[in-house]
Structure formats: structure tokens, C-alpha cells
Design a protein around this nucleic acid. Sequence first.
DNA 1: TGAAATTACTTAGCCGGCTAAGTAAAAGGG
DNA 2: CCCTTTTACTTAGCCGGCTAAGTAATTTCA
Lengths: 152, 152
Amino acid sequence: MTEKGIEEVHPVKRTTGFALAKVCKAHRGSVGGMLAEVGLHVGQEMVLIELWHCDGLRGGKLACRLGVEPPTVTKMLRRLEDSGLVERRPDPADARSFLVYLTEEGRALENPVVRLWERAEEKTLAGLDAAERRELGRLLTKVRAGLGAERN
Amino acid sequence: MTEKGIEEVHPVKRTTGFALAKVCKAHRGSVGGMLAEVGLHVGQEMVLIELWHCDGLRGGKLACRLGVEPPTVTKMLRRLEDSGLVERRPDPADARSFLVYLTEEGRALENPVVRLWERAEEKTLAGLDAAERRELGRLLTKVRAGLGAERN
DNA sequence: TGAAATTACTTAGCCGGCTAAGTAAAAGGG
DNA sequence: CCCTTTTACTTAGCCGGCTAAGTAATTTCA
């Protein structure tokens, strides 16, 4: 008998969302591995990216830009501070807040991180030609834009 | 003066990988919110999906299918077992292993989860027309296939 | 056959996420 | 002016991931 059902795949696995999750996980894994070489954990580079773009952000603003909840930022900043990449200073305008500044070491990571993201990108998209890459980028950007009027 | 630099975006943010991460996070958020309504945490449904397809998997096989490390499976299964969705029985063929079986409740979640993934998919891809959705699905599948000869 | 190597899983502990609940400062409003 | 509400952040604790280090059973092989 032909085992007709044996290669069947669950309906959820045939969704675009599922493929998205898998590809994202792979990409995250790539970035994570490379990031470990410069002493970062995946996700922490996002904080740095915001600060490279605009140093001295308030904690809450950072959470908002990252699209993440405040407690997440609290913990990440504590670790980044312990690693000496970031500095938290009181906000002179509001005693409840603080401002986050890069240290020299934090600033020094920008180029390595940019390069490593490029390498991860290349690794992830290795199976696509230039036109396909453009199209994938366009579609993801469009989806992102369509995901409500959310920031970041 | 025109504030020419003010809308500049960091190079990393212009990568496809970055858009991928954002879209994936939004999708995960959608699924997670819906999953909470049926008492699941995002990620746990992946275990169930494997079991719906093939009940009685070994722990290690499950980890492999999920593309996840064994300790992750250990903890997830403990929680799923505590929730009464899954049952772990000793493997008669190998005393180091165990087999994972769905309970009736675990089996009952299949349709709700499938429907909720469909809703999340719709929500995520709302900004794309049918052709674009097909193309995005095709490209993600291709990327996934290109990501080494990895399983799952 | 019996010691060594391999395999299968668990434990401990860290990280990025989250929610819920707390604290403390700032803003409003009578 | 003081009391209430809102805001900004922290703490506690859970979850899905990971790695490193363990334990116990199976395999291998001399």
C-alpha cells in the first residue's frame, strides 16, 4: 500500500506565518551566534541601534522605539550597564525618569554589529537572487507598514 | 533649514532581516494573544502540532522536529503535562527515553489552534493582496529551503 | 564480558520577552 | 494648597529559548 498520508504536513505548517517564524528563527540564530563573538546577546543590539541613532534616550522612549514593554528594557539596560556598554543618568527634567547614554565601548560596537548583520542577511537570503531579495524586502516592509499605524 | 538627517534610519533597520524580525514579532504577538484565550503560551502550540501529526513521539525526536534544544522540550513538556494536554510515558524500548502522547484535551485544541493561526495570518497579511501573499509565501519557503539542508 | 564511549534526557542558570503589582514623582483640579 | 489621578519605572515571577554540566542507560569493542 502507498502510505499516502505519511508526508502530509499540518495545516498550520503550510501558513506563511509558520514559514515566517522559521526563517526568523534561523536569522535570529545567525545573528545570535555572531553577536556572541562580540559579547552581546541577541536583542541587546537593538538597544544599541536606537542609541547609535539617538544617544541619551529616556527609558520609556527606548521601550517604545523597540516595541517592547518597560520591564524588558529595565532588565536589558541593567545588563548592558553591567557590561559597560551603556550608562543610565538621571533625567534632570523628571526625577522618575532617566536618560540612557552609550559608553565609548558601546559606541565602538556599531561597525562590528552592522557588518555582522550584513553577514547574517547574506547567509539567510543565500537562496534568493537579487530580484527575489528586493521583492521579499518590499513585501515584508509592506506587511510591516500594514500592521496598524504602529511606530518602529 | 531642512533637517535632512532627522529621518535617517540606521543601516541595520534597512535590512530584510530587520523587517523579518519585526513582522515575525507582530505575528507572534497576534498568535500569542489568541492562544492565551485557549490557555496556551505561544510556542507550546508547536509541540501540539507535532503530536497532532504524529502522536507518541520520543522527547528527542520532538526537539529535533521543533528545531529546538532538548532542555527546552523538557521544560515545555513539564508545563504541558501540568496543564493536562500531554502525557509522558516511558519508552518500552529504551529506559533513557519517553514517549509523548496527547490527552483528550490536547487533541481537542487542534481545531481552535488551526482557526486562530488562520486569523493571525489574515491579520498579519492584511496589507497584501492575493498575489503578494502567494509571492511572500513562496519566497519565505524558498529561503527556508535554502537555509542549509535542515529538517523541519 | 566488562570497561569506555555514546546517547537521551534533566538540572541549573542565563537572556529576551511578557503581565501584574508595586513605588514614587509629576500633573491636575477643586 | 492639598488630594487625586496619571505617569515612569522597578520588582517579582512566568514562559520560550539557549548553553554547560550533570546522570543514567545503551552501545561498542577490545
